[in-house]
Design a binder for these strands. Structure first.
Lengths: 139, 139
DNA sequence: ATATTGGTTACACTATGTGTAACAGATTTA
DNA sequence: TAAATCTGTTACACATAGTGTAACCAATAT
């Protein structure tokens, strides 16, 4: 899944958990509500479990439960939980040995630039809490 | 090609043109210098031609020539020239008709967020000129 | 025991990216 | 005029990555 799609799917699921009875919700139920398939959703939610954002219980009455409060959970935390690689992955051409030295330096320049952008994006996401999103959705 | 790779390739080519004799440079020569293949490079450079950033002449003595001065050419202009889709494309899940209405609104939220990020990135690129890059490379 | 659920792996299918080649049109050179 | 060279464009095979689905095990409640 693309990083952004994964993020929006995760937030939709978290939104569903935040707005539903505080009882474990199954992956099937969540998936139906947010319009995705349960198997893929479990893959994403299991990452949220590992990062302590949601809790999961198994068995007949099992499911997923929101642990973090919406006012304390921001997008960057969600993003980091579900994505191992850097946000909005960017790459540059590799340079073979025969290339000009400046070209090699150019790669460094772009990697730095993309890192800067990465930081900007993460800072932006750090200021957006699940609670903010819920409030905005309800307008 | 990914957006970022395309951008770095284009800038490398422009750097080469800026630092070489003001005579048309062939795609083969540029490609060898910056470590890519000529055919793919022509595809990118032709977009720069259409946007008036470089000029191309055909025939035996033909090649590519830098039109815009490095101090007046910024990254955003280069990016817009070579990329039709939005920078660093982001997507969200589509919602089928049976989904909750809030989920539909959530898509709007993320599209807005990603647009904001897009604007931030472009503003950042607007402040980086080819001349800046050249100077930084030479350090 | 049985049923249900999360967690994980596997897999076929699709889409996208990538490098390369080929060719037409334009232009210079001889 | 003929040949050589270059851009611009298209096509294509190949590799890589994304996607949806299914299947299975471990855990847990009834």
């Amino acid at each position: 899944m693309s990083a952004s799609k994964k993020l929006s799917t995760a937030v939709k699921a978290l939104y569903f958990l935040a707005e539903t009875d505080p009882a474990p919700q199954s992956s099937v139920k969540i998936a139906e509500a947010i319009g995705t398939n349960a198997s893929k959703l479990r893959q994403t939610l299991s990452l949220l479990v590992k990062n302590g954002i949601v809790k999961s219980t198994q068995g007949t009455t099992g499911g997923f439960l929101l642990v973090k409060k919406p006012e304390h959970l921001h997008l960057q935390e969600i993003y980091c939980a579900i994505e191992d690689r850097k946000a909005f992955y960017l790459d540059v051409n590799e340079v073979n040995g025969s290339g000009m030295e400046p070209v090699r330096k150019m790669n460094g320049f772009f990697l730095d630039l993309f890192s800067d952008i990465q930081v900007d994006i993460e800072n932006k996401m750090r200021n957006i809490y699940l609670k903010n999103i819920i409030e905005q959705i309800k307008l």
